[in-house]
Design a protein around this nucleic acid. Sequence first.
DNA 1: CTGTTAGCGCGTTCAG
DNA 2: CTGAACGCGCTAACAG
Lengths: 359, 359
Amino acid sequence: MEKSDSLVARLEDVAARVGVSRSEVSRVLNGRVRVGKDVGAATRERILEAAREMNYRPHRAAQSLARGRTDIAALMMVIDRDWQLSPFSNGGLELSPHYHEIIGSLTYTLSQYGIHLLLAQCGGEGSDPVAAMEKLARTRSCDGMIITDMRVDDTRPQILEESGLPFVVRGSSPKAGVVAVGMDNVAVGYQAVKYLHSLGHRHILFYNIGLDLMSGQRRFEGFCQAREEFGLGSGIEYYDGAHHENGAYEALCERLKCPNIPTAIFAEDEMGAFGALRALSEAGLRVPEDVSVMTCLNARFMRQVAPNLTVLNVRQSEVAAQAGHLLAKILQGEPVEKQQMLLPPLLEERGSTGPPARR
Amino acid sequence: MEKSDSLVARLEDVAARVGVSRSEVSRVLNGRVRVGKDVGAATRERILEAAREMNYRPHRAAQSLARGRTDIAALMMVIDRDWQLSPFSNGGLELSPHYHEIIGSLTYTLSQYGIHLLLAQCGGEGSDPVAAMEKLARTRSCDGMIITDMRVDDTRPQILEESGLPFVVRGSSPKAGVVAVGMDNVAVGYQAVKYLHSLGHRHILFYNIGLDLMSGQRRFEGFCQAREEFGLGSGIEYYDGAHHENGAYEALCERLKCPNIPTAIFAEDEMGAFGALRALSEAGLRVPEDVSVMTCLNARFMRQVAPNLTVLNVRQSEVAAQAGHLLAKILQGEPVEKQQMLLPPLLEERGSTGPPARR
DNA sequence: CTGTTAGCGCGTTCAG
DNA sequence: CTGAACGCGCTAACAG
């Protein structure tokens, strides 16, 4: 039975060294044993010592198979061109910066529970992201999953439920009765308009993300509420993701060629904001004297890049951390309410917004 | 033997449905069979059909155990405060932007080989990153590993070799005889100085990353070469990571209080560059009229943020992609040269640099 | 207190 | 062309 060809020690090797059975070692190492009752203190010591000396570690696949648990959570990033990201010519691909915050936060949060994060198949040319996700679920490659970037017609919650894999939605789920935690994008849309209106702006340009995304849809709702409440009917110009490729930059360049420039702009995200700032700068308009600009803060390090930008902090890392905690709890068998949890955005007023110029 | 309590079908369930043995199904599904010779074409069809209908997927842990392969590669990100990242008060943590590029590129590259990316334990308070890595290796949680952010005294290559786990170094390895692919940071240091010198600058401020990192060390080498070659001895001011917390911003603010301002600045990375730009702006200095600024481009999306910044593109995603390809080849058993591969940086000249002002 | 036994689900001989 | 049998390394009941 001795196979010392492998570089790593197995349970059996440790057992042989000490002169006890495998199960004895397993129990001691897993703490499934009360000292001085289920096991002799001396034996225990010898086992622990031997394991340490031999640098023993349980084989993960074997342990997973036996325990029925992987201690891995998968993050389902959809990186298909049609969904979220753009592949690059040199064979790389560009992750939207907001993933950065999510990945960091999730990795950190889950590691506290002894759970590793697996980045799920990214689509790429020709592969179906949803099929990839289903495969991951049905192969039991992970104990649970976190899905993001929900679309209004997203079928993923349904599919995951059918596969029986626990999951948490980061964002808003189109399907009720699932565990979800996200940003309150209705509030984002509403507060953006409300804030700019409160500064005195009556002509606002609102760039939204695509309406095929839940977040875009919700933001649109809030936007409409505010538009009505503040009677801004004709004073608002609205565009969403469908209209431009490079965020607000191209769209705004186009818009600036026409007369009657708005006095305030809400950009869909940081990239949009930088685009907008560039377009304004090229047109010789000053911020905030001529035009106010605000956006959403997705990636925290962006604050360092543009410390002067007024933002609605959409708390990506907090939302992701919450999602991680919830998933961990579910995996531990704790009861978790199957409903949406929405965090409110935080307005951070800085130097890129102000009252409109007097005409 | 029938256990239909599980939501997912097992090999045996498929076999029972068709009326053949498990091994038969396994072989057919894995293509370990010549049609019309090892198996009846009709039988084969029925097996395939049944598997599809039942939505069968092999259980990953079981498959891994049997095959001795996980199809997972781990990325060892060191996120300890002492190493790379800063934990945040709200329980999140901030990933340096350059990880973003690496993660995206690796995920994409490896997925082409059917390999998933596992983000390895991030340290956090009190946990030893190296121990975490060793655990990951010895538990055989992955088939191979990619390690980054090499330090000059890094013990990880040694430890991984001892554990027998294949790995690739992304960056420069302090230990020879391992597979490594990185940026030529000697060239980075050298070319930065050379370029600024060629513009006419004779008083340059060079911010480097920490000398405890291989990249910092190499950059310093190149820097010294250039300084000597161009006879810039006293015309250069050099600082490295040890001197400041918030990158170039704080350091430069301090420096600008003193007379004899340099005419050009090389910042250690994008964040440093933004800090430098801010410090200059606050001091009323124009770029590039009064001071030229350049840095390294780590994260591609930063080009969109600051399209006007002159950079040395350090090609993070290409380097990471190369590392991914190499690891995949190693895992496939292909021979790979055990030596460093260094990509040269690409100078991208834009608007933040120019000739020095005439005094 | 300890060892024996039986799986976990899949891959792979090896006789039939 | 097929099925029985064994092993991957570990966990967990169940006897002693």
